[in-house]
Design a protein around this nucleic acid. Structure first.
Length: 655
DNA sequence: TTCTGCACTTAGTACGCACGGG
DNA sequence: CCCGTGCGTACTAAGTGCAGAA
């Protein structure tokens, strides 16, 4: 039901003026600068184009002569063990893929060993008892297993929550025999504490294991990794992301989830769909079992899938981020964001114009897009009520999520946002908006209840359809990628200083990274030990400071001594003391930098933006430009994921 | 057109282990 | 060498977006 009128009858605004926000003035200026610095990527492109052309040519010849699909594979049968070393090949392959797989297929050959299943349930020893209403009771294994899931979570807050308990109890009862069912009717009369103690003792014992035992387990894990953790996809041996099937347990949703506590059932081979190529060696199901299905669908990238019982959604086993297929997609994502950079001014002018439209749907679309652009909000798909926690994104914002303040302190037209976003993370922000946006928001709010949609004539599908018309491949999430990456680049430019030491440069990088994380609202729970470790660090700093003043005193004394005696020995002492002071100063500075960095990071998670939003070529170029080793910015896993960028980007790369 | 299913990206958290300082 | 702790990694939930069915 649309609460808003479709057409806006009278223009309530007196001004037709154009008020670009400071942010946008800055952006357009920056864009202009950026356009001029494009020569390097172009050069890179030409290089690739040449090879690609050559490759294409060769391929066409193959096709013409024999149409033998194997001829390509033979010519390029190079198993890439290190992606990094073979980037030129990678490019060729990528260019080739683009031209080759116009039909949307993702691979030609795929072979793997299937998933690793969760270990079977081991019943509790008889001495570990469950009590109902004070009396010991032996449960049959299925009911006992589900009981252990609850027992293992006893220390967690959510086992006290009503919904969790209700959902758990309902699902638990399904596993009971009719006898157990009739006896166990009240969760409050259940005593799991002996079971809980048993598991605590078990995990304690695991910690206390000898070195040899631990090594043995490690080796076994490594063996499983080697056997099941890799697959062959089109001549590459690739690492699989998640080759273990999720074990059964109690569902833990995030936030206020209506399904928390439900039983996540055990996945059996009969639930599993295998995807691989026809000509590959198919994975074998465990003895005495069958797969649900084996299919050969090369239009998708997953190797294994099953349907999960909580939401009824499909889960997949896919490749690691270091794989060709993921890296290529990632690269593509940033290229789309870079194309947005080229036309973002036009799009911004467009939505500003649309704020004045006669049609309500267009105004709503334009204001929503403004939020997505300016505040990096997510699109906000509709969700099924009662199936998930009540969270929203831009298009699904409700009246209750914003407050309008015509005046606040010394600012005008302030909008206050307060809502739960993805993962039930709170988004809270107060921002001044342009008058026209403000007036539009007032209009959208007219005659609505708090629980009504703010944008009642808009959804993500309408918005994305519009975006698609503005630029090929443009969707709402591209704005997040674009704004994140451009912010990093601009912040790095602003913060970096050639005189800085490497740690200071890394701090600048982290600060730039942090600006993005704040923009994208990437939060984390403050580490449990945060206060304490902060105190420890402060103590260290204090100690260092004392050390420094002591060292300075000694230096002064040595200088005085030297002035008096003018001998070689005293001169040496002065030098030694000077060096000592210098060393301590450096150490102190390092500590202080560390403290600042950590304090500023208390509730901000940098990882998500680094991994998903920041064009890695910006970081690589920055490292090259300022002589910072890439290892200071990316750990090993990240370097593997971004191998394509590490080899591609030169120091003057511009996003 | 709207709805639903599917595939894939993005997200925070728990946990274990390597590493650095005392 | 031991201990605490902070980082890396595994895990899996929760988003986005598109295509095809209804």
């Amino acid at each position: 039901i649309n609460t808003s009128p479709a057409v806006i009858k009278s223009e309530p605004e007196e001004d037709n003026g154009f008020y670009p926000s400071p942010q946008h003035i800055k952006t357009s200026k920056r864009e202009y600068d950026d356009e001029e610095c494009e020569y390097k990527p172009k050069k890179v492109k030409t290089e690739h184009d040449k090879k690609a052309k050559k490759r294409k040519h060769e391929y066409e010849e193959d096709e013409d002569e024999s149409a033998d699909i194997n001829s390509y594979s033979d010519a390029d049968a190079i198993v890439v063990s290190s992606l990094r070393g073979c980037v030129l090949l990678l490019f060729v392959v990528i260019r080739w893929e683009e031209e080759r797989y116009t039909d949307g297929s993702k691979w030609r050959f795929l072979e793997h060993k299937g998933p690793v299943f969760a270990p079977p349930y081991e019943p509790l020893p008889d001495k570990v008892k469950f009590y109902y209403d004070g009396k010991p009771m032996k449960l049959n294994p299925p009911a006992e297993e589900v009981a252990t899931f609850f027992a293992k979570m006893l220390d967690h807050e959510y086992t006290t929550k009503d919904i969790f308990r209700k959902n758990f109890f309902k699902d638990w009862r399904k596993e009971m025999t009719s006898e157990e069912k009739s006896k166990i009717t009240d969760l409050n009369k259940c005593n799991f504490s002996e079971m809980s103690e048993y598991f605590k003792a078990q995990s304690e014992a695991r910690k206390q294991m000898s070195k040899e035992e631990k090594l043995k387990i490690k080796e076994e894990n490594e063996r499983i990794l080697q056997e099941y953790g890799f697959c062959i996809m089109d001549n590459h041996k690739e690492r699989i992301g998640n080759f273990r099937i999720e074990p059964p347990g109690l569902f833990r949703g995030r936030g206020d989830h209506p399904k928390m506590g439900m039983l996540k059932r055990r996945i059996r081979p009969e639930d599993i769909i295998i995807n691989c190529s026809k000509d590959s060696k198919q994975p074998k199901p465990p003895p005495g079992t069958k797969w649900k299905e084996v299919r050969h669908d090369n239009k998708v990238t997953w190797l294994v899938s099953w349907t999960e019982n909580i939401q009824g959604s499909i889960k997949y086993i896919m490749l690691n981020p270091s794989s060709r297929i993921k890296g290529e997609k990632d690269w593509q994502k940033y290229e789309t964001a870079r194309r947005l950079k080229k036309c973002v001014d036009r799009i911004r002018n467009q939505y500003r114009e649309d704020w004045k439209s006669k049609e309500m749907r267009i105004r709503q679309r334009a204001v929503a897009l403004y939020f997505i652009d300016k505040l990096a909000l997510r699109a906000g798909n509709e969700k099924e009520e009662g199936e998930t926690a009540d969270t929203v994104g831009c298009c699904s914002l409700r009246v209750e999520h914003i407050k309008l303040y015509p005046k606040m302190d010394d600012q005008e037209y302030v909008v206050e946002f307060d809502f739960l976003g993805k993962d039930s993370i709170r988004y809270y922000n107060k921002i001044p908006v342009e008058k026209r946006v403000f007036k539009n928001l007032q209009l959208f709010l007219e005659n609505k209840q708090p629980e009504d949609d703010l944008f009642d004539r808009l959804n993500t599908s309408i918005l994305n359809k519009h975006l698609q018309e503005l630029m090929d491949g443009l969707t709402a999430k591209v704005f997040r990628t674009y704004n994140a990456s451009i912010t990093l680049q601009q912040q790095l430019k602003e913060l970096s200083c050639s005189d800085d030491s490497i740690p200071a440069k890394v701090l600048s990088y982290n600060r730039a990274n942090r600006a993005v994380a704040i923009l994208c609202n990437h939060q984390r729970a403050p580490p449990k030990t945060f206060e304490k470790s902060m105190q420890n660090l402060q103590t260290k700093i204090d100690e260092k400071q004392n050390q420094l003043s002591a060292a300075r005193k000694q230096l002064k004394a040595a200088k005085a001594d030297h002035k008096a005696s003018h001998d070689d020995k005293s001169k040496k002492t002065v030098e030694v003391k000077r060096k000592a002071v210098q060393r301590i100063e450096e150490q102190l500075m390092k500590l202080q930098v560390q403290a600042t960095d950590r304090e500023e990071n208390k509730q901000i998670a940098l990882g998500t933006s680094k991994l998903n939003y920041l064009d890695p070529r910006i970081s690589v170029a920055w490292c090259k430009k300022w002589g910072v080793p890439i290892e200071k910015i990316y750990n090993k896993t990240q370097r593997e994921k971004f191998a394509w960028a590490i080899d591609m980007a030169e120091k003057d790369y511009e996003f």
